[in-house]
């Protein structure tokens, strides 16, 4: 007689929900066969990590024009990197100072296979991912790798990545070290270029990552 049961929107389904109140208040002492079947069916259909993964419907094409191989996969890469393989820090470029290493090790991405593979990518690959997969998790990881592990910084104004090189000078000079800046030219040459000598570093132009 309850009003809810007379609502045409719900009256069909409501009795099923109401039935569950019985088993909530007084669970079966022994699991009846019907319940066991349902439980086993649930085990059989148990959602896995792919079910729990992020939904994607529309995948943006690559953000900038660039030829790609037809063998390029469309689905996100999902795999497991063996846990006990040592994280060998990137060979090629920069000084990775130990305090930023520690910072990286404590974030939630550091133990994922994808983040670990990114530590092995060379700069070219990282920049490619950054500029072509905008708005994606992969772009996020590439910027994390560039900034946290390789000490590049992102300029919000010209959208380029910059790197500060410190060169130790031989003794007897006016100063002990010299600072020079490089940036990655993604627009034209797709190369790292030296900044002009009158480049001035303005902290506020760079993204705090």
């Amino acid at each position: 007689q309850n009003q809810a049961f007379r609502n045409p929107l719900f009256n069909e389904e409501l009795k099923y929900w109401l039935n569950t109140k019985k088993t909530l208040m007084q669970p079966y002492k022994e699991m009846p066969q019907s319940m066991l079947s349902q439980l086993e069916s649930s085990l059989l259909n148990c959602p896995d990590s792919l079910d729990a993964d992020s939904p994607y419907l529309y995948r943006k094409p690559l953000s900038l024009p660039h030829p790609t191989s037809i063998f390029f996969p469309n689905e996100p890469i999902r795999f497991i990197y063996p846990f006990d393989l040592k994280l060998s820090n990137n060979a090629t470029n920069n000084n990775t100072n130990t305090s930023s290493q520690k910072k990286v090790k404590n974030d939630i991405y550091s133990n994922t296979s994808l983040a670990k593979i990114f530590t092995k990518f060379d700069l070219d690959t990282l920049f490619f991912i950054f500029y072509h997969y905008q708005g994606t998790y992969e772009q996020f990881l590439s910027s994390r790798e560039l900034n946290k592990n390789r000490n590049w910084q992102f300029n919000k104004v010209d959208r380029c990545w910059y790197y500060k090189e410190i060169e130790k000078l031989p003794p007897g000079m006016n100063k002990s070290e010299e600072e020079s800046w490089r940036y990655f030219d993604y627009k034209k040459s797709w190369l790292a270029r030296r900044c002009s000598p009158d480049f001035v570093y303005k902290k506020e132009d760079f993204e705090k990552l």
Binding site: T20, L39, S41, S42, P47
Partner: peptide, 22 residues
């Protein structure tokens, strides 16, 4: 809480997966 195994045993494994969802 309404979806718990006592109420919907056919959802039990999904339910445990949901309460522990990342």
């Amino acid at each position: 809480h309404s979806f718990q195994p006592f109420a919907f045993p056919g959802f039990s494994f999904a339910w445990v997966s949901l309460i522990s969802h990342r």
